[in-house]
Nucleic acid binder design. Sequence first.
RNA 1: GCCGAUGUGAUGGAAUUGGCAGACGUGCUGGACUCAAAAUCCAGUGGUAGCGAUACCGUGCCGGUUCGACCCCGGCCAUCGGCACCA
Length: 802
Amino acid sequence: MNKYDFSSIERKWQKYWDENKTFSATNDYTKPKFYALVEFPYPSGQGLHIGHPRPYTAMDIVSRKRRMEGYNVLFPMGWDAFGLPTENYAIKNKIHPAIVTENNIKRFKEQLKALGLSFDWDREIDTTDPEYFKWTQWIFLQMFKKDLAYKKEMAVNWCTSCKVVLANEEVVGGVCERCGGEVVRKVKSQWMLKITEYAQRLLDDLSEVDYLEKIKATQTNWIGRSTGAEVDFITTTGDVLKIYTTRPDTLFGATYMVISPEHPLIEKWADKLSNIDEIRDYQEKAAHKSDFERTEMAKEKTGVELKGVKAVNPVNNMAIPIFISDYVLMSYGTGAIMAVPAHDTRDYDFAKAFNLPIVEVVKGGNIEVEAFTDCETGVMVNSGFLNGLSVEEAQEKIKKWLEENNKGVRKVNYKLRDWVFSRQRYWGEPIPIVHCEKCGYVALPESELPLKLPEVESYMPTDNGESPLSTLESFINTTCPACGGPAKRETDTMPQWAGSSWYYLRYCDPHNKEALASKEALNYWMPVDWYNGGMEHTTLHLLYSRFWHKFLYDIDVTSQKEPYMKRTSHGMILGEDGQKMSKSRGNVINPDDVIKVYGADTLRLYEMFIGDFEKTAPWSTSSIKGCKRFLDRVWALQDCLIDGDDYREELRTNFHKAIKKVSEDIESLKFNTAIATMMALVNDIYVVGTINKKEYRDLLIMLNPFAPHITEELYEIVGYDGVLNQQSWVKYDEAFCVDDTVEIVIQINGKVKDRIMVNKDLNQDEVLEVAKKAPKIAEALDGKSIIKQIYVPNKLVNFVAR
RNA sequence: GCCGAUGUGAUGGAAUUGGCAGACGUGCUGGACUCAAAAUCCAGUGGUAGCGAUACCGUGCCGGUUCGACCCCGGCCAUCGGCACCA
């Protein structure tokens, strides 16, 4: 036996797969297809992280198994390469971001290849390639034409450190998702995408896809649908003050109103308000608070009454005061609420702070102590024609009443906001729009795509919140495609999420020059059958790309409503100390080093064996040795080889069981137990002492998706026909999955007392008979009467005795 | 506060449908091989008591259902992730 020289074996097979294009998806559209997708990485300067191979290997295993099962498999890889770190690195080191990107991609690609992942490299894509982002821009233009992209002056999240606008999804815990910097509100003119128009469909169609429950729950929460009513309160000035509420049943308990500090009616009423200075002062303070400060100060309610104006409650004609307070957001509902302190905790706090009346309209709680918010148990009181009804009945009745009397309408609201789509950065897709004094915002003709990034001296973001492109006269000044007059180009670029919102479509037909992909290719390959990615993208990339896909479906580019049939998620790999890996903690594991010492097959195996795929797991340098030992033992089996073309009696059940378990576990992402099963099988083989050619071959096939290099090599060494990856996946027979004799556990009163071996499928009476005769059992039952006997076939007997 | 998870030996984690708790791996202990070490191989390894067969205890805590509960139900505690003044 020669040495298991993993380095040269791995290099050899990686070269072989490359040269033979072993894993190219064919365009034979008659074969059954399988589209496996992993999130393409951002090629950072740090190179591959030890966490990257976990999802990649998992889907590689599924892909390799599918190929052996006869599918035409598409398992592609590419680069999500626009982004801030590249730009920052470029600024710091005075290298063009395109060069930085090219270098990073080169490194990433080498590292991925060293893992033996079966990607189809002929379909590699790069979001920064003009031939790619031409189509990102094209999609944007289609949205613009359908009024789904619009420019709006609005308060946005501004990261003071990145000097860039952030989408709501990018603000995490009040700070910048990427850098942790402070986020403040800033009024800017921004490109927006109307994702809200798709809110209901994004919610509804979750029922048509197979996503992990927690992914569906997170998206559902984020979309945040609520049902209620819009109600018109008429003010003493004669204006309509429209509010939104989910609890119209509590209308009789509305004792005051609160409007957002940004509410437009305040300006209209300005000369009627006796305390306008105080109000202006409060508005000023609210405007300067960052979102972080606003949430930080959530505990204490502040506000100012608008003195001089009152509103009339439409159900009882009571005139009630109006306040402004920053707990009411202009961006949700109508920016105004009716306050029902008895049945809403926030209103309760506010009423206590300002000494306002609290009127109970739902009986069931103790409003002396706290707001009663339960909708299930209460009964309506102090509510005129609603008295005596349940909350649910009252809601229905009041909604009808509002509509019949023209005082309000039923209304559905969503927490989801439109997507802030412009970034004040250089390294992103230019937005293909020009602004003309006469014609307004005008789309660039499609023939002018791609609109490439100009060469600039400096990529530095500017302090005034403008894009680096804004200083480049030659880029800005152009002519209007509509009227031919002078016009200015948009200087903001698209966010990082743009290119990844449709990349899975490009893989279907990556070199197409006429369209983002041919209809034929899309019809064959789409939808993605299985998409694995990080939980952190649930309300970002995953939601955005579903939105784009639905839009492309509406304009007949794609034929499916949903892009991804199945979505799963992997856990993070932590440092050995159980902490997140980071340079500052000094607990970073570098995949290159691991491959050098143990080989790619061992790394792959260990990343799959480390624990439950969906959970975070700490790295363990000593544990990885176990996986190496296992591969050493598989390698050494070549010395125990004997002839034979069928399983031998003593290993038949072991093989059938193992094949069943491994096959099923791969489908349910239980790679750790699949590997444990193969380890146990190899242990059993060593007990027998020999392995025949049929048995070895099947072991190699089973192990191949996990450890592709060593298995290919052994397959060749033994001299089987062809190459391993071309073989069919192993099959099992249910009939051989149970041993001829089975061990039956015998319990007395639920406690295990003995075990017996019996022939399988013996009938109940026979087994009970044998069980009672077992010496320990007979002794224990002596002098007792059996009240009940329970029999579980091939497993267990329980005597209930007294 | 709301939503979603999770809690099992020294340790990473198994346990199909309510049916042998601790598979598989690591670590540790002892042994073989070796001048020695590494590697490899063999045996053992939840706790307590006992020379021992064995007995009792044991899946975060308290209770319940059941012949039988890591699993189901009720009530807590702890940890993690997400959302959060969304009317």
